[in-house]
Computed example of a mutant assay.
Amino acid sequence: MTGDETSLRARADAQGGVVLTAQALAGGWTRGRLSRFLTAEGWTRIRPGAWLVPGREAGWAELLWTHQLLRPELVVSHWSAAMLHGVEAGPPGEHPAAVPDFICPGSAAVKGATLHRLPLAPGEVTVVAGLRVTTVARTMADLLRAGPRDEALVAVDSALSWRHGRGSGPPGSRGRPLTTLDDIGRALTRAPSLRGAGTAAWWLAMADPRSGSPAETLARLRMNDAGLHPETQVMLVVPATGRRVYPDFLFRPQGLAVETEGYTWHGTRAQHQRDVIRFNDLAACREVRRILRFTSADVRHRPAMMIRDIRDALA
Rank of each mutant, 00 (worst) to 15 (best):
M1Q: 11
D4K: 05
E5W: 04
A14K: 12
L20W: 03
T30Q: 11
T30L: 02
G32N: 11
L34Y: 08
F37I: 01
T39D: 10
T39E: 11
R47F: 13
E57D: 15
E57F: 02
E57Y: 04
A61N: 01
L63C: 05
W65K: 11
H67V: 07
R71Y: 02
S77P: 00
H78L: 10
A81V: 06
M83L: 14
L84C: 08
L84W: 05
L84A: 09
H85T: 07
G86H: 03
E94T: 15
A97Y: 14
D101M: 10
P105R: 15
S107R: 15
A109I: 04
V110C: 12
T114E: 04
A121L: 15
P122A: 14
E124A: 14
V125A: 11
T126F: 09
V127K: 13
T135G: 07
A137Q: 06
M140W: 14
L144M: 12
L144S: 10
R145M: 02
R145C: 01
A146W: 09
G147F: 09
D150N: 07
D150P: 00
A152P: 00
V154C: 06
V156Y: 15
S161L: 09
H164C: 04
R176Q: 11
L178D: 03
L178C: 06
L178I: 06
R190S: 08
A191L: 02
P192F: 14
S193F: 07
A197K: 14
W202V: 08
A205E: 14
R210T: 02
S213V: 03
E216Y: 01
T217F: 12
R222M: 01
A226L: 07
M235C: 11
M235G: 03
L236M: 12
V238H: 15
G242R: 14
V245P: 05
P247K: 04
F249V: 03
F251L: 04
L256A: 03
L256V: 08
T260A: 08
T264A: 15
T264K: 13
R269Q: 09
A270R: 15
A270D: 13
A270T: 13
H272A: 11
V276N: 01
I277K: 12
A283F: 00
A284G: 02
R286G: 00
E287F: 06
V288Y: 01
F294G: 10
D298L: 02
H301I: 00
R302N: 08
R302V: 00
P303V: 02
A304H: 03
I307R: 00
D309I: 00
I310V: 09
A313Q: 03
